[in-house]
Amino acid sequence: MATGLKKAVQVRAMLADDLSAAHGLSREQQWPHREQDWTRMLELGQGVVAESEGAIVGTTMWWTFENGFATIGMVIVSNAVQGMGIGRQLMEAAFADIGDRTVLLNATDEGLRLYRSLGFEPIGSVYQHQGAAFSVPIAELIPNERVAPMKVGEVPDITRLDQDATGIDRTRVVDYLCDHAQGVVLNRDGDQAGYALFRRFGRGYAIGPTIAPDIGGAKALITHWLGSNAGMFCRLDVPDDSGLSSWLDELGLPCVGRVTRMCRGTPPQRGATVRAYSLINQALG
């Protein structure tokens, strides 16, 4: 039975016309993505779909970066055909395009076995926090520190901070996000020291990425967005070693899920001055 189905499945490039069906697959998995979120991710990267008897039954997307890295996400196989090797076919199609880059992904528990068999190793966890914070404390800024709206001329500095924080050259992605999001910059002693973006995503809004020199700076950036949007549904995906999880719980954004950060190849090496305190999203990292 599995062999017959596998022969009937065609893996091909994802097209804009496929996004409505892809959105249906993510809804089946109870993922919050809107069709607009799928559209923006495809504009930034590439994808493949698995098609059987005219229906799309699986998806995978990936994003490549100039300095030898790639991320994979939106790996979905319809409940009706899981366990039949379609996920592996989709991943192998992605690898064929990605080449010899180091690949990063955030894995649900259901995908761990497949990803391990494909050479991925765990490197940490990411906690998903979401909710509506109705009471947010005033940010505790240190002397000569302020949070201010991002200016167009600051974007090149922001992209350099982002690469230092992640070890990945995400210039094209950050430039795109800055055109589709609101941004604030953490300024210390007259220099850009971090930033955070706020944009529509899923059930409400996403805060991320958040790049900062320390947890105090990260809290100042996140507090700005929560305080100016009190009562709105917000989501943050934070690394397990960020130190933010219990703080977000206290603010009314409880942890509702966890994924495993995985890497196939040599993990990127971030700089010593800044780090990522929240992700763009779980797909892009």
Rank of each mutant, 00 (worst) to 15 (best):
D179W: 06
P32Q: 05
T159N: 09
L226P: 05
V77C: 14
M262D: 06
G73N: 05
A165E: 01
L284M: 11
V173W: 11
S26H: 05
A96R: 13
P32K: 12
D164L: 15
G58S: 09
W63K: 02
Q30W: 14
Y195F: 15
I158C: 10
T171H: 10
C178M: 04
R188S: 05
Y277P: 06
G58K: 03
R235C: 12
V147E: 00
E28F: 09
W247N: 00
R113S: 13
V256G: 04
Q89C: 15
L284Q: 04
I76R: 01
E66K: 08
C255Q: 13
A218Y: 08
L141T: 00
P254D: 07
V184T: 02
L279M: 15
K7I: 07
A139W: 06
V184P: 01
D237N: 04
W31R: 15
D179I: 11
V238I: 13
L114F: 09
H33D: 12
L248R: 10
H23K: 14
P267F: 00
C234K: 06
D97P: 05
A133M: 09
V238M: 09
A212D: 04
P32Y: 10
A165L: 04
I222P: 00
V173E: 13
L177F: 14
G194Y: 01
P239I: 14
T60Q: 13
G131K: 05
R258A: 06
V57S: 08
Q82P: 04
M232R: 14
A21K: 13
S228Y: 06
L253R: 01
Q192Y: 09
G194I: 08
I76E: 04
V49R: 02
E92A: 03
M84A: 11
S228W: 06
G216A: 02
G285A: 10
L5G: 03
D162W: 02
T59E: 14
P143T: 11
G87Y: 07
A93D: 01
A55C: 12
I56S: 03
G252E: 07
E154W: 02
I76N: 08
